[in-house]
Every structure is written in structure tokens, then in C-alpha cells.
Design a protein around this nucleic acid. Structure first.
Lengths: 122, 122
DNA sequence: CTGCATCCGCCGCGATACTG
DNA sequence: CAGTATCGCGGCGGATGCAG
């Protein structure tokens, strides 16, 4: 089927809606970090380099709210909290994988284009 | 091959790098708007609802710099400028299509999760 | 260890007015 | 019609301190 015209508007809105959710600085990185399996708070913090505690807390909470990850608490002292991807979260990480593959494949070309453009218009 | 562990870090960086480029408010919407074929400035502005001239100008310029779109000028009065996706731009729009499909497929589930979460923690 | 509250700088984005 | 220049705001995200 040809989606080039008819659904362009709908696609447009859907993509922009999703990008506004997952397009922030950390969401995708946290999801990717959780792909191998469940992790605890500071493990995630280590796997995702450069994120602050607060941003990790916010990101995890938003992901939990959207049903992307599941939070499980062990009431020990000190308490242990583990986070795991839900099926929905895994499907997102698969989609992210497509993005990653595209990025890896074309990153070099983009960099080259940029250099040529800047050299042409100084 | 199994990418779940080994390339998690590399994927992470690649995705975040790309998201910082295309994850803004308008880039993807402009690319999607150009899928059917070349369009002129104000045509794009109409197809992408709610974008200001300045943001459209900026977005187009960045996309051109990255080699995603091509700008062709007809020196008439008034001048006519058309924008078209390059092969690289089309490949991006295909990737965006995956995102759009994922969004359409799971948007309802996410909305439901969110409502349930908010009802549990008032 | 895990998580929340507060303060604050930066910049993405919109509105507006002005050129060719 | 197709841009450019300037201003201002809102919110993301970083640093720090406090709590359970």
C-alpha cells in the first residue's frame, strides 16, 4: 500500500507526539541500558554515563508511568530497588535499535555533508 | 548475532547523538511532509501545522547542511524555492516511519498505563 | 542506597518586525 | 514569496542538600 500521501498528516502527528516523549536527553539511553535485563538504580546510573541522580529518577518514573519499565522493591536495609523492561519497553528498545542502526550507518555521511556545507558558505 | 550486551554502550551513544539532531520539535515533521515529493517553502509551512517561519527556516537549513534535503532556487519574481528529500533524507523518513508505526500501535496502551498509574498514586 | 526538593543557567522555540 | 534579526519566555536538565 502507498502511505506517501494519505497518512502523511497522521504519521506526522504520531511521530511528533512520540518524539516529545522519548526524544529527551535520557529516556532512550535508559531503555537501552535495561535491554540486557533488570538493573538497580546505581547500576543504571553507571551504565548511562553522565546522567544525574535526579534526571535518572525522573526518567525512571516517567517510564514506569508509561508502562515501559517495572519497579520492584526489596524492603531490606538498605532497600534494594530493581528496574526491568516490560514487553512494551522491549518493543520500544527494538524500535530504538532501528534508530541506532540508521545512526551508525549514516553518521559518517552526515558529518561529511556538514563539513562540505560549512566550507562552501563561510 | 546477539547485540543485547556487547554493543549496548555504542548503541546508547549513537542513539542519543541522533536523537539530539532529529529529536527536536520539527525536524521529523518536515521530513515526513516532504516524503511525497518536492515542495515550496509555504507549502511545507501549510503541511506542517503550527510551525513558525523562523523555525521552518532553521529546520530546513539544518536539514540541508546534513544533506537530508536539497534546495533549488528559480530566480523569478517573486523567486521560487523548492525543497526535496535526498536519498539520505528518504532513508531517514523510512526510519521515522518505523517510529510512527510503533507510536500508532502503542499510543493507546501508553495512555491507559498512564491513567492507571495516576489513579493508583493520587 | 534510593529518592525528593530547591535553586538556577541555558537554549529551544514562538512572536514580531523588517529586507529583497 | 522567502527569508533575516531581535526579544522574551518556559522548561529541561545540572548541582546541591536533605530524608527514609
Amino acid at each position: 500500500m502507498d502511505m506517501t500521501v494519505k497518512s502523511a498528516g497522521a504519521d506526522c502527528r504520531a511521530v511528533s507526539e512520540i518524539l516529545s516523549r522519548i526524544g529527551d536527553k535520557w529516556t532512550i539511553q535508559v531503555v537501552v541500558a535495561l535491554r540486557p535485563g533488570p538493573h538497580r538504580f546505581n547500576e543504571i546510573k553507571r551504565r548511562v554515563g553522565g546522567i544525574s541522580q535526579q534526571m535518572l529518577t525522573r526518567t525512571l518514573k516517567t517510564l514506569e508511568r508509561d508502562g515501559m519499565i517495572e519497579r520492584s522493591v526489596r524492603h531490606t536495609t538498605p532497600p534494594q530497588v530493581a528496574y526491568a523492561l516490560t514487553p512494551l519497553g522491549h518493543s520500544l528498545s527494538d524500535t530504538a535499535k532501528h534508530l541506532a542502526d540508521w545512526a551508525a550507518a549514516h553518521r559518517g555521511a552526515i558529518a561529511d555533508n556538514r563539513i562540505r556545507y560549512d566550507n562552501r558558505k563561510p
